[in-house]
């Protein structure tokens, strides 16, 4: 492989991770940044999207493509995929249609998980909600490992190769699709902040009592926010599974809750641009660390990945102490034509 190929591969891989994290971070920002719901368990929605996509995708592909087989889509996963994948490879439109279907399923799965995990505490104070959501976080791994028909137990399953039609450019095509979906979701989130719904959510975050006095049903809006955010997280999980081609029940709190929190904190909560900035900076840095970590293997008497844990934890704490608002400050989002003279003064001052 030439150095140029290596660079291209590095950028493609980086962009895919960036796209998935951008989707999930937007989902987290809708909840914590805009509505003020401390969701410490988004791994629940991400894993929900991932595992449901992993469990259903082969089954759906088999039945929709009319493949004749007596094999079980999960337990004889590899053999079934050997029948399904050539069909998908020869019919790109079918593959794209399936992709869209799987993303919808992933989104619904994520929304369901968000609803389940927040239901007991959505009426209570935010710290109860935070503890409950955190506690639910990694429970899907228990079910993924224990209930084999879902994703084949601890070893996991492969999923149909949705991007197989691109041949040797499979990962390029996958990254492109991921980036397109991420851009669409990012644009939607930017639009959401400016809608009446977005402004109501912000009002609830800033002052619950005032929002309630204006007749807003707090519980209902919080639920809507969790539903929206978790849908995006589910889509992110689903996309990651389809891109990487396999799923195992190992979705951990560190990767899918702590890192998204770190990224939106770094960029600036509540601000759409902040989420983008935080995600880009973090993913690029972290990927570089992973890329260069082999230089240290053998020198240190321990696995370098743990140093990464310590470093990222320290960075988060430093941000929290010295710049809790992040790199990009949240912008004023009221529509311009409605600004009264007093508002203009506030904005100018």
């Amino acid at each position: 492989m030439t150095p140029l190929d290596q660079v291209i591969l590095f950028v493609v891989d980086l962009s895919a991770l960036l796209a998935v994290y951008l989707i999930i971070n937007v989902g987290l920002n809708v909840q914590e940044g805009i509505t003020g719901i401390p969701n410490f368990g988004i791994v629940f929605a991400v894993a929900g999207g991932a595992y449901i996509t992993g469990g259903l995708s082969t089954r759906i592909a088999v039945s929709l493509l009319g493949t004749q087989t007596n094999l079980d889509p999960i337990f004889d996963n590899i053999s079934v995929l050997q029948l399904v994948n050539p069909i998908l490879r020869s019919q790109p439109p079918t593959a794209i249609a399936l992709l869209i279907l799987f993303l919808i399923i992933g989104g619904i799965a994520g929304a369901l998980m968000g609803l389940i995990s927040s239901a007991p505490a959505v009426r209570l104070r935010e710290d109860y909600l935070a503890i409950t959501l955190l506690a639910f976080g990694e429970i899907l791994n228990v079910i993924g490992i224990g209930y084999k028909p879902l994703i084949g137990g601890p070893i996991g399953v492969n999923v149909p190769d949705i991007f197989g039609w691109a041949g040797q450019y499979r990962f390029y095509a996958g990254t492109l699709v991921l980036l397109l979906v991420a851009t669409a979701i990012f644009a939607y989130a930017g639009y959401l902040i400016k809608t009446p719904l977005g402004r109501t959510l912000k009002a609830i975050r800033d002052n619950e009592t005032v929002a309630r006095s204006l007749g807003k049903d707090i519980t209902q809006y919080r639920t809507v926010s969790i539903l929206l955010g978790s849908t995006l997280c589910g889509i992110g999980g689903s996309l990651w599974v389809l891109y990487s081609g396999a799923v195992t029940p190992t979705y951990a709190r560190f990767d899918w809750t702590f890192l998204p929190w770190l990224m939106i904190l770094l960029g600036g909560m509540g601000s759409s641009r902040g989420v983008l900035v935080g995600t880009v900076i973090f993913v690029a840095l972290n990927k570089l660390i992973i890329y260069y970590k082999h230089a240290f293997v053998g020198i240190l008497p321990f696995d370098i990945v743990w140093l990464n844990y310590i470093l990222l934890g320290l960075i988060t704490i430093l941000i929290l102490i010295y710049r809790p608002e992040g790199i990009v400050r949240e912008k004023w989002t009221a529509p311009k034509q409605n600004l009264s003279a007093a508002d203009k003064e506030v904005k100018a001052g």
Partner: peptide, 23 residues
């Protein structure tokens, strides 16, 4: 800092200690 920020700080500390124990 808000309660939520304090909670993230404890979570970050947890991650650091996890790294230390693993090392």
């Amino acid at each position: 800092s808000s309660t939520v920020m304090l909670m993230i700080a404890t979570l970050s500390f947890d991650i650091i200690m996890l790294g230390v124990v693993n090392i």
